[in-house]
Amino acid sequence: KVILLEDVKGLGKKGDVVEVKDGYARNFLIPQGLAVEATKGNLKEL
């Protein structure tokens, strides 16, 4: 699961917690600054 930092077409809006494949999160969303891993600490910051 990841928390979206920006609106991502076809996935969700900023602040949404979405389930995506590990590779998509690690190789695209997180490096592009579009999402962060949905850890307990990150979820509390919402």
Rank of each mutant, 00 (worst) to 15 (best):
G41W: 03
V2G: 01
L43V: 05
A35S: 02
L34A: 04
D7L: 05
I30Q: 03
E6W: 11
G15W: 14
E6A: 13
K9D: 10
K14N: 04
K9I: 12
V8T: 03
L46W: 08
K40D: 15
K13C: 08
T39R: 04
N42A: 08
I3M: 10
Y24V: 11
G15I: 00
Q32K: 10
L46F: 13
L29I: 02
G15P: 00
K44R: 05
E37H: 07
K9R: 12
I3Q: 08
D16M: 13
L43W: 04
K13H: 12
L29A: 01
E6S: 15
A25T: 04
E19M: 11
N42S: 04
K13L: 10
N42P: 13
K14V: 08
G33F: 08
E37Y: 07
D7P: 09
G41F: 08
P31Y: 15
V36Q: 09
N42F: 06
L34K: 10
K21E: 15
D16G: 05
E37D: 07
A25I: 09
D22H: 11
V20S: 02
K21D: 15
I3V: 11
Y24G: 03
N42D: 11
D22E: 11
V36K: 10
Q32R: 12
G12Q: 00
L4K: 00
E45G: 07
G10M: 09
I30K: 03
G33I: 03
A35R: 01
A35T: 01
V36S: 06
G23L: 10
D16L: 05
N42K: 02
K44S: 14
L5H: 03
I3C: 05
L43K: 04
V36G: 03
V17H: 08
L11Y: 07
K9T: 12
P31T: 15
K44M: 15
K13S: 11
V2L: 12
L11S: 03
V8Q: 04
R26Q: 13
V20I: 06
F28L: 06
G41M: 06
D7C: 08
I3E: 08
L29R: 00
L5K: 08
L46V: 08
V17K: 08
K21C: 06
V20L: 04
I30D: 01
E19S: 09
I3H: 04
L29K: 00
P31D: 15
D16Y: 09
K14W: 03
G10D: 09
K40L: 15
N42Y: 05
P31M: 15
D22A: 09
K40R: 05
E45P: 07
K44L: 14
T39E: 12
K9W: 13
K1L: 13
L11N: 01
P31C: 08
K40S: 15
L43I: 10
L4S: 00
L43F: 04
L11E: 01
L43H: 07
D7W: 08
E37L: 08
F28A: 04
K44Y: 10
G33L: 09
P31N: 14
G41S: 14
N27Q: 11
K1Q: 13
V17P: 02
A35G: 07
E19P: 05
V8H: 04
G12F: 01
K9P: 14
D7F: 12
N27L: 13
G12W: 01
L34E: 02
K13F: 10
L46C: 04
D22I: 08
A38E: 11
L34D: 02
L5C: 04
V18T: 03
Y24T: 07
G23A: 14
V18W: 03
E19F: 13
K44N: 15
E19I: 14
V18H: 03
G10Y: 09
L29P: 00
Y24L: 06
G33P: 01
L11V: 12
D7K: 07
L29W: 02
R26M: 13
E45T: 03
D22K: 08
A25M: 14
K9F: 09
K21P: 13
G15N: 09
E6M: 14
L43D: 13
P31F: 13
E6C: 11
D7A: 09
G33E: 06
G41A: 12
D22S: 13
L34P: 01
I30W: 03
K21A: 13
G15E: 02
G23R: 12
V2S: 01
G15S: 05
N27W: 13
Y24W: 10
G41R: 07
K14S: 07
K44C: 10
G12D: 00
P31K: 15
A38P: 06
V17Y: 08
G33C: 05
V8K: 02
N27P: 02
R26V: 11
A38S: 09
T39G: 09
G23C: 14
D16N: 08
P31I: 14
F28I: 11
V2Q: 01
I3L: 14
L4H: 00
K40I: 15
R26E: 14
E45H: 07
K13W: 12
K40F: 15
L4M: 04
K40P: 15
E45A: 04
L46A: 11
K44A: 15
A25E: 04
A25Y: 08
G41P: 08
P31Q: 14
A35E: 01
V17I: 08
K1E: 11
E6G: 13
Q32L: 13
T39Y: 09
K1T: 10
G12C: 01
F28S: 05
G23H: 12
G15R: 04
L46I: 09
V18F: 04
G23W: 12
Y24M: 06
K21R: 14
G10K: 05
R26C: 07
P31V: 15
E37I: 11
F28E: 09
K14Q: 08
I30C: 03
V2I: 10
L34M: 12
V36R: 06
F28G: 03
L4P: 00
F28T: 11
G23V: 12
K44E: 15
K44Q: 15
D22W: 10
R26D: 14
L11P: 00
Q32F: 10
K13D: 06
G10R: 06
G12R: 00
L11C: 06
K14Y: 05
L34H: 06
V36C: 06
K1F: 12
K1Y: 09
K13E: 08
T39V: 03
G12H: 00
L11K: 02
K40T: 15
Q32T: 12
L34T: 03
K40Y: 15
E45S: 03
Y24K: 02
V36P: 00
K44P: 14
R26T: 12
D22N: 12
V2C: 07
K9Q: 11
V17D: 02
N27A: 12
L29C: 02
A35L: 01
L11T: 05
L5G: 01
